[in-house]
């Protein structure tokens, strides 16, 4: 365990990389996922179909296979060869996570009862007013818990990057366990605790947002 305590900066920098991966790909998948969700609930049938196919295929693909494409298969064809590893990790995680973000958003929008929009229209609100004052506020609230789940899963999924040469927390734990066979359990507990802290922070944040946005009913 001395090795870990004396090299604690390595543990911290590993978790910093984990957090970077989670943050950047989290933001990117929120953007891409929102676009996809807009396509999936929009009025144009082809866009709906295309986004649907994307979501269905990606949801049934293992994340490791996505990484395999970004880190091995595509560079082998001659693209993404000089791209930094962090960026490649972000690309793979975003490609995967945005499908789940899209589904969470779609479920949130669909959870707003049709009667709400109809009532808003009946009292003469325009489309813009209807969206900004009636539909979207309700959809955002409904979407917070599932989106938090997606972000938590994303944080855990960053560990897959370890298999492709990114020295984030899981890869660092492997290094430490290799050198300190006697303290494996403690090392595992340390890194597990690190992940649990990150995950709990996200769910506390979501809980706070949920409470703050809660509407009196």
């Amino acid at each position: 365990m001395d090795d870990v305590t004396s090299n604690f900066d390595l543990v911290l920098s590993a978790f910093w990389l984990t957090i970077q991966l989670a943050l950047i790909s989290g933001l990117a998948s929120l953007v891409l996922g929102t676009l996809l969700a807009a396509m999936r609930v929009g009025p144009v049938a082809v866009l709906r179909r295309a986004a649907g196919v994307y979501v269905n295929v990606v949801r049934n693909t293992p994340l490791l296979i996505v990484f395999l494409f970004v880190f091995i298969a595509i560079p082998n064809v001659g693209y993404l060869t000089d791209t930094p590893f962090l960026l490649k990790g972000v690309i793979a995680l975003t490609f995967y996570t945005s499908a789940f973000v899209c589904e969470a958003l779609r479920a949130g929008i669909n959870s707003v009862p049709l009667g709400q929009a109809e009532a808003a229209r009946a009292i003469g609100l325009t489309f813009g007013q209807n969206m900004t004052n009636v539909v979207l506020p309700q959809a955002f609230r409904a979407v917070v818990p599932p989106l938090a789940s997606v972000l938590i899963a994303l944080t855990k999924n960053t560990s897959v990057a370890a298999a492709f040469g990114l020295l984030e927390a899981t890869a660092r734990m492997r290094g430490f366990t290799n050198n300190n066979a006697d303290d494996r359990l403690l090392i595992f507990a340390t890194f597990a605790l690190g992940y649990i802290i990150v995950v709990e922070l996200i769910s506390l944040g979501a809980f706070g947002l949920e409470r703050r946005w809660k509407a009196a009913r």
């Binding site: 969470a104 599932p146 789940s149 997606v150 938590i152 899963a153 855990k156 769910s203 979501a206």
Partner: peptide
Amino acid sequence: TDVGNMQGGQSTGGGI
């Protein structure tokens, strides 16, 4: 099961 990990729509907020 979403993202193959978390507890979808029934999040309790506190736990995962």
